[in-house]
């Protein structure tokens, strides 16, 4: 059985927390550049120019793209033939978050008790979604997720009869009502099916796909492109100030559902759609 020191996990998480917050991945950067070319509103174009200038400053000076450096969400796939030694997995991840957010001068945004308040002081704990898979590798997606876009996310326990039209209305209304709050142009993660909690989880997982990549299922690929067109017809535009670029992409993840249920969730990501991937 392959072994991995927990300190290696810590180091990787620390580094990726910083990198994710300093530099956008190419898929997001290219998509924003394309949006700048195609945006029809002069104000929208000005906003996109600021966003692109900002991204250049952040990566050159190694400062956070956004002051909201997020809750650290981690989707991890742990191979069942990999043995972590020297400490527990969750402790190793949280130690990495603590180190990354401290060394990188990233904002610590985690309130320790949701009602009584207090700050944990080091941005821990991370939100960890752990999946046990075949093999002897550890794959991690690190997604610092801001509060503004998270607050505009929603879930609905629909009727199966609501079908595709129900999904379209849910997504388009959701993006329109979110207006400028989630920092458009957004990436829209849509979860369809599963249970209440699985649906919300896969709507966030949908944000991991490279922006603008095709859905492997042609049926959902078509629906994604249709939803993107509809969302961009809302007029919300960059920063909500009006324009033709409201979303960069719509991504759908699905899961089998109960015969009586039709859960649909929408998780929005801001234009600074930060994500990093590593395989250890």
């Amino acid at each position: 059985m392959r072994e991995i020191e927990s300190s290696i996990i810590t180091e990787a998480v620390a580094k990726l927390c910083m990198e994710a917050n300093f530099k956008l991945e190419d898929d997001v950067q290219e998509s924003l550049e394309k949006a700048y070319e195609t945006e029809k509103s002069p104000v929208g174009k000005e906003v996109l120019k600021q966003i692109l200038d900002n991204s250049r400053i952040a990566s050159t000076e190694r400062v956070p793209i956004c002051q909201d450096t997020g809750m650290t969400v981690i989707f991890a796939q742990l191979g069942q033939d990999l043995h972590i030694v020297g400490g527990g997995f969750e402790d190793a991840v949280n130690e990495g978050v603590k180190r990354g957010y401290t060394e990188g001068y990233l904002r610590k945004s985690i309130v320790s008790d949701p009602v009584r308040g207090g700050n944990t002081g080091d941005n821990t704990p991370a939100i960890i979604h752990l999946e046990l898979v075949e093999g002897d590798k550890l794959k991690m997606y690190i997604v610092p997720k801001g509060g503004g876009s998270e607050n505009m996310s929603r879930i609905a326990m629909m009727k199966p009869a609501d079908g595709i039209e129900g999904i379209k209305k849910f997504v388009v209304d959701g993006v329109r009502e979110a207006s400028g709050n989630p920092c458009p142009p957004v990436t829209v993660g849509v979860g369809i099916g599963g249970s209440f909690e699985r649906c919300a989880q896969i709507s966030k997982k949908a944000l991991l796909r490279p922006v603008g990549s095709d859905n492997k299922d042609p049926f959902y690929d078509k629906l994604e492109k249709e939803l993107l067109l509809l969302v961009n017809k809302t007029g919300v535009g960059p920063a909500g100030l009006g324009g033709t670029t409201t979303a960069l992409a719509v991504h759908i993840e699905t899961a089998p559902r109960h015969i009586a249920s039709f859960p649909v969730a929408m998780n929005l990501n801001c234009h600074a759609a930060r994500h990093k991937f590593i395989e250890l």
Partner: peptide, 13 residues
């Protein structure tokens, strides 16, 4: 007034 959300490194200048 609205400042551009997410343009945080630019605004800091």
């Amino acid at each position: 007034f609205a400042a551009t959300g997410g343009a945080a490194a630019l605004i800091a200048k």
